[in-house]
Design a protein around this nucleic acid. Structure first.
Lengths: 154, 154
DNA sequence: TTGCTCCTCACGTCACGTGAGGTGGC
DNA sequence: TTGCTCCTCACGTCACGTGAGGTGGC
């Protein structure tokens, strides 16, 4: 059973800096139940994060920034994944084949939906890029007109 | 002098619906000086928008949604464009050729900067898309393993 | 011991959402 | 005249920002 995960854990400040957010943001997401620090934590004790919890934060930030989802929508998505996680627990207890397939079947449409949203965004972005290039081209043409003849048409 | 612009004007509700925002949003942007309704308006009178002001709103929304700029940043960008607009006024009064070139020279880097931000976003989005496709592929592989042999490795 | 980062309230802010109460054009 | 959309306050909310005051590990 090869453990490939990095055993190092990180403090909230390190994680915040890594993703360009503040510690407040990370604590707020924990408050919403979106992410969790690793292990139990006594009141006042420091939060520690491993690669798994960091990956989770990164995904939340991607959904927020790249897809423009509200935290509410991300929570809803996470709850769908939570039933997935719950199933994964029963999987560990009793790894029967049909349950495993069910888990995979439930995970697939969630990821596919996200991919769909990404493609939509990509389309809109490329239209925006085209608009900006058109604007630049129009400016270029005007410049050429002006340099060609001072009395060029308005 | 051919007027190609659509002479029709639109009420705030029509504009809001067209872009999927609320009238409140449009009024808020006016409050910030980001957009303006056409002509003078007595207190309590209705706002009217033409294609030019609508284009401006659309651009603000693109900067907000597609590039994730804060309204503060958009205001700053607009102020840079404002000096551009001020120059355009002097252009109308005295369309000397050097001024025209100056106006075009100042507009270019602003648009180029926006295009740069769009390209950056496109890169990040395609990385995100690749991640999601990798996730889907991993799920597919697990499914194949499970369907191949029930006692497949964890 | 001294900084440093962290902690928990708790109030402030940005970008609007959401009524309350009223006016105006087809 | 009756709806309808619009108007102006003005307070609420979401997603954090920003101190205040304090604790804990290298």
């Amino acid at each position: 059973m090869a453990m490939t995960a990095d055993p190092r854990s990180y403090r909230i400040g390190e994680v915040a800096e890594r993703f360009g957010v503040t510690a407040r943001t990370i604590r707020y997401y924990e408050e919403l139940g979106l992410i969790a620090s690793v292990g139990e934590r006594r009141k006042g004790a420091r939060r520690l994060y491993d690669e798994t919890s960091i990956d989770r934060l990164q995904h939340v930030l991607q959904l927020r920034d790249l897809l423009g989802l509200s935290l509410d929508a991300i929570v809803a998505l996470a709850e769908a994944e939570e039933s997935h996680a719950a199933l994964r627990e029963t999987w560990r207890a009793d790894p029967s084949c049909s349950d495993r397939l069910r888990i995979l079947d439930e995970a697939t449409p969630l990821v596919e939906r996200q991919l769909e949203l990404v493609r939509e965004r990509q389309l809109i972005l490329s239209r925006f890029a085209r608009e900006l290039r058109d604007t630049l081209r129009a400016i270029e043409e005007r410049r050429a007109e002006l340099e060609g003849g001072p009395g060029a048409p308005q």
